[in-house]
């Protein structure tokens, strides 16, 4: 078995080596004609505005969280699935309880609308005042 994993390691290293070797070959063969303009960030011909390492949509984070929950579940399910034939009905019922709890989770996320990419009806939070009613920083300082 160790030998099999060693093969995998050799494949990984060989893959990296293959790319590295080709990069070296490419470096030797290519015509290099450097110019500072070539090194600028591409933004459809415009000069890049601001930094690109910016905040991105929080939705990606939610997707990542849901993914994590299900992926951990799948890691638990695989050993069960492998010996399912020998375990029989009892293991099936047990695992169905586990899966059911997760499906309730999926139903909750679904119902809450976190699986929608576009959120059409954002329910306003009653505790947060509309922007027009909020005090500006100056007013807050003045009030203190």
């Amino acid at each position: 078995m160790l030998l099999n994993f060693a093969t995998v390691l050799v494949f990984l290293v060989a893959g990296a080596f293959f790319v590295g070797m080709n990069l070296v070959i490419s470096r030797l063969l290519q015509t290099r004609n450097p110019h500072p303009v070539k090194l600028t960030t591409y933004e459809c011909g415009e000069i890049a505005e601001g930094h690109s390492w910016v905040q991105f949509n929080i939705r990606f984070y939610v997707i990542a969280l849901i993914f994590l929950i299900f992926e951990v579940e799948i890691v638990f399910l695989f050993p069960w699935a492998t010996i399912f034939k020998e375990l029989g009905a009892f293991a099936f019922v047990e695992m169905m309880i586990f899966v059911f709890i997760l499906l309730v989770g999926l139903a909750y996320v679904w119902g809450k609308g976190d699986l929608e990419w576009e959120k059409p009806n954002i329910v306003p939070d009653a505790r947060v005042k509309p922007v027009s009613e909020q005090k500006t920083n100056k007013e807050q300082i003045a009030a203190v």
Binding site: A16, N22, L29, Q30, L39
Partner: peptide, 25 residues
């Protein structure tokens, strides 16, 4: 293979190099 390899000046050069190696490996 003959094309010039351009790494943007603003890029993180190490990670920029690792990504293609990793995907192929």
């Amino acid at each position: 293979l003959l094309k010039e390899d351009i790494v943007p000046a603003a890029a993180d050069k190490t990670l920029h190099f690792i990504a293609p190696v990793m995907i192929f490996a």
